[in-house]
């Protein structure tokens, strides 16, 4: 049986692309999402010859993490890769941001990722890898105090987990900037154009750009890399 890769937030967008890329790398996939359409995504990936299952789970609850662990045990109980990708946004300027919107983003983007990872701890194989999806915004972003806090928190989690679980499991984070997903496609064109103009690479990132990096960090080729945050931002984190 091929090694199991779990991707959260995998019903669509970036998570789907990451899952597809890990499938190409030969992993058996377990897709996790609150959105029931994750089952359809798994079926689509299976039609390409990849072994893929799906779990619909609310990872903000202990029961959700336990459901994922149970699904892993059903598939042999040995995790090769976990990608903590599930996330939400509730953007607002600070003065208009409600506590509930701040809390919701922390609960999903940060706490749920920690909860799931710790729940799965006994199921990781030696030499396995965790990849946490942080963001370039972890360095600061306008109108996203909640998102910035959550993604920066994931950086701290990545470092601590890397040290705590070494040498058995490697833990890294990917920090993308603007990526071409349904969320960015919904932006007003003039706003998107302005944001893209600030990216030295001259274009928006593609889901494939990010998925390729995740697949690398999850692979044996990255075997000496742990506790790191890799910015996939086309140089945006450097530009004025």
């Amino acid at each position: 049986m091929s090694a199991l890769a779990i991707v959260t937030g995998a019903a669509g967008g970036l998570g789907r692309q990451i899952a597809a890329r890990l499938g190409e790398a030969g992993h058996q996939l377990l897709l996790v999402d609150l959105d029931p359409r994750v089952a359809e995504t798994a079926r689509e990936l299976e039609s390409t010859g990849v072994s893929a299952g799906a779990v619909v789970a609310d990872l903000t609850r202990d029961e959700g993490a336990a459901e994922v662990a149970a699904a892993v045990r059903d598939r042999g109980g040995s995790i090769a890769v976990l990608v903590n990708n599930a996330g939400i946004t509730r953007d607002a300027r600070v003065k208009n941001m409600e506590d509930a919107d701040f809390a919701a983003v922390i609960a999903v983007n940060l706490v749920a990722a920690i909860r799931l990872t710790l729940e799965l701890e006994p199921l990781f194989a030696d030499g396995s890898a965790v990849v946490n999806m942080s963001s370039r915004a972890s360095l600061g972003n306008f109108g996203q105090a909640n998102y910035v806090t959550s993604k920066s928190g994931l950086v701290g989690f990545t470092r601590a987990l890397a040290l705590n679980w070494a040498p058995r499991v490697r833990v890294n984070a990917v920090a993308p900037s603007l990526v071409d997903t349904p969320m960015t496609q919904a932006m007003p064109p003039e706003v998107l154009e302005k944001l893209v103009s600030r990216i030295p690479a001259g274009r928006i990132g593609s889901p494939e750009d990010v998925a390729e990096l995740v697949a690398f960090l999850a692979s044996a080729e990255a075997g000496y890399i742990t506790g790191q945050v890799v910015l996939a931002c086309g140089g945006r984190s450097l530009a004025a």
Partner: peptide, 23 residues
């Protein structure tokens, strides 16, 4: 990250919070 994972998450999260407010 030289300690507990929750403490590390909170510390790093707070630094992000500071940067978001400052920006």
């Amino acid at each position: 990250g030289q300690g507990d994972v929750v403490d590390a998450s909170v510390a790093a999260g707070l630094l992000g919070l500071v940067r978001a407010f400052a920006l």
